[in-house]
Amino acid sequence: MVHRRPIHPLALRVMHWLNAIAIVTLIGSGWEIYDASPFLPFTFPQWATIGQWLGGAIAWHLAAIWLLMLNGALYLGWGLATGHFRRKLLPLTPRAVLRDAIAAARFHLPHRPGVYNAVQRLLYLGVIGLGVLAVLSGLAVWKPVQLWPLSDLFGGFFVSRVIHFIAMAGIALFLVVHLLLVALVPRVLPAMITGGRLPTPESEAAE
């Protein structure tokens, strides 16, 4: 009773918010970079971009990427070493995803602090994968000559750009869902800042 464990450990919270800063900066500046030479029939509105012009956007993008990569490497190392991934994100079965997705669509899926349902697990694992894909395809766009094996792997310079864009779109979509769920269950937000407290067996029984 003296020391109830936090829902989110301090290390995770710090990494979460550093990641949020990096991701928002990278997407905003990435949109400005895309706008300099769009390959789809639209551009992103100037107010939604970071960097004001291409030179500023690239400077932001290639500064924030270091934060993302260092923080991301720490997160992956931490998640593997502490068993966070194993305990919180696994196991994951298609059946469980389907079950929880249906329950969520009917608003029958309860939120249990400290436990991720199957849909959450899928989304979190998916966005980690998209983050890795975004970094690798971004490296291929950055250095198609020096990192030519990576560039070739992605199908060359232009295809790397397209894959980088798709990874961004996937991450942006995740963010929309992520923020929507926070809006629906706002009590999860303070826990990501203060850590929150996991319910004890007694308090759970009392609920």
Binding site: W17, A20, I21, V24, T25, G28, I50, G51, Q52, W53, G55, G56, A57, A59, W60
Partner: peptide, 16 residues
Amino acid sequence: RALALGAATTLTGCDF
């Protein structure tokens, strides 16, 4: 934009 970034510095203008 600066607030959106969570940048806690006093930004009066930036990006060169």
